[in-house]
Each structure stands twice: as C-alpha cells, then as structure tokens.
Amino acid sequence: MLSKHVACVFGIAFFAIALAGCAVNQNVKAQGAGFDWSGTTEKRVAVIQPDIHLGELTAGGLVEPRADWTKAAQADVAKQLEAYFAKRKTSVVLVNDLSDQREVQLAKLHGPIGRAIIRHAIMGIKLPNKTQAMDWTLGPDAALLREHYKTDYALFIYVNDTYTSAGRAFLMVSAAVLGVSVQGGQQIGFASLVDLRTGNITWFNVRHDGSSGLRDSNGCKHFVEGILADLPK
C-alpha cells in the first residue's frame, strides 16, 4: 500500500514542481461559455465539496498530509464560498456529503480532468489529436447531479496547499547561501464550472499562489475570491 501512497504524494509534488514554472500568483484562464441563465427562473449552483489537501513540505520535498488543517480548511472554504455567491445574488446548494456512488465518482473525476486541462490546454503539452478547443467534459452522467440538486450548473474545486516545514525552510536558506534555489510550500488550485445538462466544462481556472495559504480564514477568503475572480455572472 505504501508504495502506492508514496507514488501519489510524489505525483502531487511533481505536479507542484511542474507548475512552479508558471508565474506565481497568477490566474490562468481557459475560455468557455460560462453561465447561461436564459430560461432559468433562479440562479442556482451546486457547489460540490471542494477537494482540499493541506500538508507540510518536508525537508526532503515530500508532502506530509495534515488532517487537522485539511478539515478546518474544508469548513472555512465552504463558508467563504457561501459568502461569495451571496454577494453575487446566486443561490448555492453546498454539497458536503456526497454518498451516492456515481456522484462520488464524478467528484473524483474532476481531479484528473483538471490536471489534464492544466497539462494539455495551459502548459502547452499538446495532444496530437486534440484541437485547442475548450471541449473538456465530465460526461453526460453529470445529469445525475442536475436531477438531485435541481441546479443547471455545478462548481468543482481542487486545491493542494503545502506549507514549508522548519527543515525545508532551513534547507532553502542554506541552499540560497550556496546560490541554489529550493522550492518552498505553495498553493495550487483549480476550479471548473460544469453545465449539468451536458457535463461540459464551460469555465476553468487554475491558480498558483506562493504566498498565501488555507490555514487561516483570510487565506481561504483570498483563495475563493482569487480562483473565482473571473467566473462569468
């Protein structure tokens, strides 16, 4: 089991390193249609419980998951999301207890699709048979969510947030003295707005932040407002 677990942690670490090449704290937008409220009487969005992972970046560059930080951030981010949509006069259904097998699968599917969008549509590793059209999708099964929560759209959020441990900080300082740059903790998140009539991702945003984290309320507010900054109304 451990080897799988370590592979997973390494995967996230590599993902973080790969993204480190992008500009820090900059939103990268993928263009889509966004909301189309025509024909709907009420603006309603299902906000699927954000997939949040907080951890400590160890001296050796591994991410040690932290359950307490993660759980606190989950509650805090949910609160910030509610406040964000209240300001926009959009009602939200916060889905915090996914239990239906197929709904859980949809939520988990968002992770790999989001990473694929980052790799192929944003970082520019082109797929030979894929046009640059923004036609990524969770598939027609997304209709399950539409029936269950009576909304036409769902918002999926993934965020991986790492904090520099004391050991890592010491390594960074020592390396800097020797003229070598060592990566510290950072935050990588992405969000997708999905049209539940088709499952298509109509808006996508990725955010990379090296300065703020989800361990405090302000950081959560900063993250929610940042990642949804360009969400079409």
Partner: peptide
Amino acid sequence: HYTHRHTINQWRLIRDTSGFLAFFTLASAP
C-alpha cells in the same frame, strides 16, 4: 501491517531519509 503500524513507520523513515539526503546532496555538491 495495520496492527504493527508499518505505514507510519515507513513514512517516517522515508521522510527523514529524504530530508537528510537533501542536505547531504547540497553539502556534498561542491
């Protein structure tokens, strides 16, 4: 494996070894 807490023991070993290696690699590089 579960009752003997092998996962956490192995994680700590990997974490601490990789930490040591990071310093060692840096220090021995010149």
